[in-house]
């Protein structure tokens, strides 16, 4: 970030008056001039999108190829009964615009691929991994590493979830942490688990955008909602990693 300032309007000062004492006007200006891509408008993407929009992230790009179904609604709280059948990104964009009409929402109804990921990540200050499968997560992780865009990963299953921040060239990436993906069976998920992990993703995203860095790099932070515990699983950068190390682009 440069030292450039973008003075807040009176309306913005009013909207964000309870967080400006925390972030400073300069911090709020930074958020308003930040662009974040949220990959996935599901259980994790819902709280991430709500809280980033509420905090005043200026441009939110949201990606998902699915349509809303009734079985999504126990956890994907950005969608409602009336949205069933609607594109998830359109449903999410409507809700975000209702929450904060002063930000720009860029809904993209697409399935993430090696071909389109560059256009998805390019120009973003940060990317959020709110996806539900590892092949797409690895595509996003590689693109974030290649274009040096910070990435905040999370995943959930039942009462448990994991979150990790990736600062390319500084911390371990998702593939260093999890080189072999777990089996993909649609896991049971409680909405609160996705809510907890998604809120932490949004919190880390805001701190990284503000230039405060992250306390969630080089470790998987693991939430167990039955035991009520957070555990930390240390992760090291793998020099031979296919995504961020010599095993990849070099």
């Amino acid at each position: 970030m440069t030292g450039e300032r973008w003075p807040l309007t009176p309306r913005e000062r009013e909207r964000y008056e309870r967080q400006i004492p925390l972030l400073g006007e300069e911090g709020q200006e930074r958020l308003l001039h930040s662009s974040v891509c949220i990959a996935g408008a599901g259980g994790l993407g819902s709280p991430v999108a709500f809280y980033l929009a509420a905090a005043g992230i200026g441009r939110i790009r949201i990606i998902d190829s699915d349509r809303v179904s009734r079985s999504n609604l126990n956890r994907q709280i950005i969608h409602a009964e009336a949205d069933i059948g609607r594109s998830k990104v359109d449903s999410a964009a409507r809700r975000l615009e209702a929450l904060n009409p002063d930000i720009e929402v860029d809904p993209r109804p697409l399935h993430l691929t090696e071909e389109n990921v560059v256009n998805v990540v390019r120009g973003m200050n940060l990317v959020v991994d709110a996806l539900d499968n590892y092949p797409a997560r690895y595509i996003l992780n590689r693109a974030a590493c290649m274009h040096t865009v910070p990435l905040v990963h999370a995943a959930v299953n039942g009462y448990c979830g994991q979150v990790m921040a990736i600062i390319p060239r500084k911390t371990a990436c998702l593939q260093c942490a999890i080189p072999h993906p777990p089996e993909e069976t649609p896991p049971p998920v409680l909405g609160t688990t996705a809510g907890i992990l998604g809120c932490i993703q949004a919190n880390e995203a805001i701190r990284i955008l503000l230039g405060e860095g992250t306390v969630m790099g080089d470790a998987l932070h693991v939430w167990d909602g039955r035991a009520g515990t957070w555990d930390m699983i240390p992760v090291k950068r793998d020099p031979a990693c296919r995504a961020c190390g010599a095993g990849g682009k070099g």
């Binding site: 996935g40 709110a130 539900d132 590892y134 448990c160 994991q162 777990p182 089996e183 996705a194 998987l220």
Partner: peptide, 10 residues
């Protein structure tokens, strides 16, 4: 000795 199964859902 610690074991952790990474999770996948979103």
């Amino acid at each position: 000795i610690a074991f952790y199964p990474p999770v996948a859902g979103g």
